[in-house]
Design a protein around this nucleic acid. Structure first.
Length: 820
RNA sequence: GCCGAGGUGGCGGAAUUGGUAGACGCGCUGGCUUCAGGUGCCAGUGUCUUCACAGACGUGCUGGUUCGAGUCCAGUUCUCGGUACCA
């Protein structure tokens, strides 16, 4: 049986065999004693073609799924499509075809590409999020959230892109401009739908501690994003009025140093002042066009205008001017701040510019400070603060907050940077928001029995407003409450909504009486291993964590059934680079997976992406490296063919023993690489080493042939996760009973690891001077004797006095000497 | 500015967690095979000294701990990611 290695042929063959045998399907039979394991990769957006980033992502997940199966787990490994989104609308405009058509076509194409890679998915669970059977539950959930007050509609300052005619999420604003048309975004007040993620801020923050299987980096980013800070809310009075001006500060100790207040351009007080002040109105208008580009923001000139209003200090009763400032954000805190130029750099700069007083109230513990030259922003001792004089900053924060609390003018408060999640989009290709606008009843949610609100799929976007707004059959509806003619909401959900719960839906993808089935959740959820790009560290991964808790609190499953967190372990893979840069069409440095599979086969493509870098690091594409991967497989192939020999002599017993040692240490090393953080590159390196050892060995007798066979069978099994088609073919040609993909993961034979003799390094003064071979149980004296009788070591001991000997059994002998 | 990760051959990267640095692969050099080779095989490949045998140096930099440090400690520098008028 001497054939060439023909990847295309054997890959097709094995894919068909796996399908036929159903080896990738998980079992839901309650009598199945295996432990459940849920492995998931971030599902793809059907953009049309698989790129190398996908290949890497899905290969990593597949390696884990296959490894777990071979280790006796009942593995759920599903796939589907994140099918709603903007690119479909862009393509629709370009090709003048509805986005649905483009999307379904792409799904068909990409499904074929995924299958070519030999990924072990349970395809029976596949779904696309643009199917009404899927998004109906999202609509159902949203209605529940509205009932609980966790979803609401309100007017807010949002990012607006005029040409695209929609609001954008912060993440869709790149350097101050729309990611699609590159037009600078405007801040606009619009009525939009939000979900109250801030209600869960505390739990989202605290539960980060439960995510021991997540990279520290991602946890840190989320913690940062949630941005918890503790401080004091203080109520200032407004002169000549009953109203109050609330502010949040983390530095209540500086309260006595307030010399002015600053409010955001969108603050009611600013708007009111502008009514009688055209100059100010102009300034507010200017502020609404401010770029949100980070660099600009940091460098932007700090500008302000006096509103003419005066605030009353809550302790002294003194009046201070209220200004509008372009650096105060309406969306953080109360949209107003107290300003203490003496102890805040920004306020200091502002006060200098506009000639506002600077009043020092904190001084360094034991030095002086020139407050006119620079703000003193550290903790210190209070001065000029009446009854609080002499207190340290920390004590003063408590004392002043207590004073305000008892006076009813303030209290301690926790403030988050996290904002409520804006989920409505003025887009067509998304899940309809199940709401109805009635002139008489206001906003009425669609009754449950009328779900789903199906998105008409035949509409043709043109680039302006969503075609939904002009689709009469969609918009016209009778009010469910009063029965009069009303209008459907034409906004659709942010597509992050769909990707926030798909991992749970996979546990019961066809359930039509519930969003998820609690029993299925109990069997599979949470995801044991999630694999995806770090670019979703905050957005998708935060939303999904949030949504999981929403589902739990909606009673869809309990903590015991589905967990409090959706993803137990997270592997964030690095990018695939070419010439040091991310692959992109515009840079022209892409490598097409199809052409690699065509030329080398899927197994080589898999092997290269897994070997070239550790999973979490960026991977530099190398054509030479792909050749190397291909060469390795050919080498194993030849080794397998040459192993088919008839023994005709006597083996070197020591060599046979040494080879068995190599085989079993390799099994240990590869297993260890899997268990210790998925070091697949190291695992493959170990398999290459073992292959080299097998190639170098020349069997002469029966024992030799048997040990080579033992090595090849172990190799076939351990290659399964990386190159499953190749491994199956290898196994079959070796005459293995079962398909390699369903074989057991090889076990280490401890007896093979026992050596009669071992080699120790010998050091003099900690420097390696030679090595000696001694019986495995040799004690220090015996090893010392062997070292002293070794010429290359003995010469270093000549004329020296031995001061100390360090003996590490099994490793080394270190002799410390000094001149005699 | 703040938070995080990291500096190991020509390159990607190993190092059992304080014990023989540079596994494995790529690249390169020489040789063999071949009509030919973008094939296969063999040998070599951290730097420097040396005909050789050997030896010295070597994990960003400076110190420290230790019989012994890529690994631990202190400081320093550079690179990369994230993030920011957040009050």
């Amino acid at each position: 049986m001497s054939d060439r290695y023909e990847p295309q042929k054997i890959e097709k063959k094995w894919q068909a065999k796996w399908d036929e045998a159903g080896v990738d399907l998980p079992s839901e039979d309650p009598s199945d004693a295996r432990k459940s394991y849920y492995c998931l990769e971030m599902f793809p957006y059907p953009s049309g073609n698989l790129h190398m980033g996908h290949v890497r992502n899905y290969c990593l997940g597949d390696v884990i799924a296959r490894y777990k199966r071979m280790n006796g787990f009942n593995v759920l490994h599903p796939i589907g499509w994140d099918a709603f989104g903007l690119p479909a609308e862009n393509a629709a405009i370009k090709h003048k075809r509805p986005p649905a058509e483009w999307t379904y076509h792409n799904i068909d194409q990409m499904r074929g590409q995924l299958k070519q890679l030999g990924l072990s998915y349970d395809w029976s669970r596949e779904f696309a999020t643009c199917q009404p059977e899927y998004y109906r539950w999202e609509q159902w959930m949203f209605i529940k959230l509205v009932e609980k007050g966790l979803a609401y509609r309100k007017e807010a300052e949002v990012n607006w892109c005029q040409p695209c005619h929609t609001v954008l999420a912060n993440e869709q604003v790149v350097e101050g401009a729309c990611w699609r048309c590159d037009t600078p975004v405007e801040r606009k007040n619009l009525a939009q739908w939000f979900i109250r993620i801030t209600d869960y801020a505390e739990e989202l923050l605290n539960d980060l501690d439960k995510l021991s299987g997540w990279p520290e980096k991602v946890i840190g980013m989320q913690r940062n994003w949630i941005g918890r800070s503790t401080g004091t809310e203080v109520s200032f009075g407004v002169e000549g009025s009953e109203e109050v001006l609330d502010i949040f500060t983390t530095r209540p100790d500086t309260l006595m140093g307030v010399t002015y207040m600053a409010v955001a351009a969108g603050h009611p007080l600013a708007k009111r002042a502008a009514k009688s002040n055209s100059e100010l109105a102009k300034f507010l208008e200017e502020c609404s066009h401010i770029s949100t580009k980070e660099a600009d923001v940091a460098l932007m000139e700090k500008k302000g205008m006096d509103t003419g209003f005066k605030a009353l200090h809550p302790i002294t009763g003194e009046t201070v001017p209220i200004w509008v400032a372009n650096f105060v954000l309406m969306s953080y805190g109360t949209g107003a701040v107290m300003s203490v130029p003496a102890h805040d750099e920004r306020d200091h700069e502002f006060a200098h510019k506009y000639g506002i007083a600077i009043k020092q109230v904190i001084k360094p513990v034991d030095s002086e400070w020139n407050i006119q030259a620079a703000a003193f922003i550290e903790a210190g001792v209070l001065i000029n603060s009446a009854q609080f004089d002499g207190l340290g900053s920390i004590d003063a924060k408590v004392a002043i907050t207590e004073f305000l609390t008892s006076a009813g003018k303030g209290e301690e408060r926790v403030q988050y940077r996290l904002r409520d999640w804006l989920v409505s989009r003025q887009r067509y290709w998304g899940a309809p928001i199940p709401a109805i606008h009635c002139d008489g009843c206001g906003i009425v949610m669609v009754p449950e029995d009328q779900l789903p609100v199906v998105l008409p799929e035949h509409l043709q976007p043109t680039g302006g407003a969503s075609p939904l707004t002009e689709c009469e059959e969609f918009v016209h509806v009778d009010c469910p409450k009063c029965g009069k003619a009303a209008r459907r909401e034409t906004d659709t959900f942010d597509t992050f909504m769909e990707s926030s719960w798909y991992m749970n839906r996979y546990t019961s993808p066809h359930s039509d009486d519930a969003m998820v089935d609690a029993a299925a959740m109990k069997q599979w959820a949470p995801v044991d291993q999630y694999v995806g790009g770090v670019e979703h560290a905050v957005l998708h991964l935060l939303y999904a964590r949030f949504y999981h808790k929403l589902m739990r609190d909606a009673g869809l499953f309990t903590s015991e059934e589905g967990g409090d967190e959706p993803f137990r372990n997270l592997l964030t893979q690095g990018m695939v680079l070419k010439d040091g840069a991310k692959m992109s069409k515009s840079k022209g440095n892409t490598v097409d997976p199809n052409s690699i599979i065509e030329k080398y086969g899927a197994d080589t493509a898999r092997l290269f992406t897994l070997f070239a870098a550790p999973p979490e690091k960026d991977l530099e594409w190398s054509d030479a490296g792909v050749d190397g991967a291909s060469r390795f497989l050919k080498r194993v192939w030849r080794l397998m063919e040459s192993a088919d020999i008839k023994p005709a002599g006597e083996d070197d017993a020591a060599a046979v023993k040494a080879l068995r040692l190599t085989i079993h240490t390799t099994i240990g090393r590869v297993t260890h690489a899997f268990e210790q953080g998925y070091a697949f590159n190291v695992a493959i390196a170990a398999l290459m080493e073992m292959t080299n050892a097998l190639s170098a060995f020349e069997p002469k007798g029966e024992k030799g042939v048997a040990v080579v066979r033992e090595g090849l069978e172990a190799l076939a099994a351990m290659l399964v996760p990386f190159v499953p088609h190749f491994a199956c073919e290898l196994g079959e040609r070796m005459g293995m009973e079962k398909m390699a993909v369903v074989a057991d993961w090889p076990a280490v034979d401890e007896s093979a690891l026992v050596q009669d003799e071992i080699t120790l390094a010998v050091q003099i003064q900690g420097k390696r001077r030679g090595e000696i071979t001694v019986p495995k149980d040799a004690d220090q004296d015996a090893v010392m004797a062997a070292a002293e009788s070794d010429a290359s070591i003995a010469k270093w001991l000549d004329g020296m006095q031995i001061v100390k000997v360090i003996f590490v059994p099994g490793r080394l002998l270190n002799i410390v000497v000094k001149p005699a």
